[in-house]
Design a protein around this nucleic acid. Structure first.
Lengths: 229, 229
DNA sequence: ACAAAAGTGTTACGCCTACACCCATGC
DNA sequence: GCATGGGTGTAGGCGTAACACTTTTGT
């Protein structure tokens, strides 16, 4: 059969849930829409793909435009295609989720955004389109993936004290962890390297800083490993 | 902004990895393409979506056309959109994976298929398009999901002996399990109901048959539960 | 000196693993 | 009666969870 596909084709967009961690709360980046439909609503950053562009490439392009960051964790999440989800016409959205280090971000409102803002994931506004359905899926993915892959480090500075890592796990998973047991398990994984600097914030004993050592991780990954904490 | 999207739009297809279990091996249903491109190659069953049709609906429609089964486990897997994956032009494929009971299937070659065949997942032929990349992802999803959700029962008859369930886990996960420990753990989950009939196949003691009890499962699901075996 | 977070070991319990023999049936 | 898969209990080891005090700094 020749290439006959006589039906109208849907438009194809990419939307990205961008997570960051400020030391206390998990946050997501949203943009305020400047255009109809849903003008004035908050929405996930995203846009239509170019015709010669890979899906992940489009997501990275949008991510760079909104936050200025590159080279971060980015993973496909889910594809939304219910008819009617975009009042302008049939649109398929491939959702991605990204983890960024807050310090590296320079959020800037693009041409089609009235504003950009980091919202705590527990206090999100009403979202445009069906984006309200995307966020719980992204959170669930983050939570489950943090348990067996070392993706949490994508949310922390390159050097961090163990207490920050623990705080991140506690916040995202919604649990409290025993400090001693946490340190024991993390250290037993042997994927962190102590680095020279010390955290010197506050009126208390300074903390040893660590960095994630991807070489160590790659070396032990093969025998299977768990991040259950 | 009015609905201006002046770019050419990709075509949108749905392809489904259909798994079944024959008691010994995990198998996947493939069709032999009757048309160019990749005429004569084996491929995942699938097709273009209708304009007013949900993605999952399209997948279920294709599934029913190919196998005659309805109401089975079906889940979105991953979306493939690399430019060039379809030589006819930009095509996005949303891949699904489905679990069916072999006894309920009546595989039939559709109009665009020269043949339909169940292949053991360990002995797949070269596949059309990028479908060779889909299968490992589907297998990985099946394996990981079987560990914490009761999806295995979608591959078994409604009544089955425990040994068949164990065989399924061993085959899919590529491990061997201790019979006593397996039965202890499965029974402790309290999600099976013994049913009257007995398996009467072969020259040996007949086996008690069980069925998956989704009511029991729903009741205990909330407290979290694991299928680690 | 005091407030505030960093850092550090041991014990008890529960869970998971390993393991061998009898049972019911068909041929 | 023999071959085949069905069905059952226990003991030891390992990993996980619970738990409190000292250290170092800034003010």
């Amino acid at each position: 059969m020749p290439y006959s596909y006589p039906y109208p084709r849907p438009a194809l967009a990419v939307d990205t849930v961008i997570f960051a961690f400020d030391g206390r709360m998990l946050k997501a980046l949203l943009i305020e829409r400047n255009n109809s439909p849903f003008k004035g609503y908050w929405a996930l950053p995203g846009g239509f793909i170019n015709m010669d562009e890979d899906l992940a490439t489009a997501a990275r392009r949008e991510l760079a435009e909104e936050t200025g960051v590159t080279g971060v964790f980015l993973e496909q999440l889910y594809t939304f295609g219910t008819p009617g989800r975009d009042p302008r016409g049939r649109t398929i959205s491939v959702a991605y989720f990204a983890l960024v280090r807050l310090a590296e971000v320079e959020a800037k409102a693009g041409d089609d955004a009235a504003a950009v803002h980091w919202f705590p994931v527990e206090e999100l506004p009403k979202l445009a389109f069906d984006h309200g359905k995307v966020m719980p899926i992204a959170l669930e993915r983050l939570r489950s993936k943090m348990r067996y892959q070392p993706i949490a480090f994508g949310l922390l500075p390159l050097k961090f004290p163990l207490s920050q890592l623990q705080q991140l796990y506690e916040t995202v998973l919604g649990i409290t962890l025993d400090k001693r047991n946490f340190r024991k398990k993390v250290m037993a994984l042997d994927i962190l390297t102590p680095v020279k600097g010390q955290s010197t914030t506050g009126a208390h004993r300074p903390a040893q800083l660590y960095s994630f050592d991807s070489k160590k991780y790659e070396r032990i990954k093969k025998r299977g490993l768990s991040f259950e904490l």
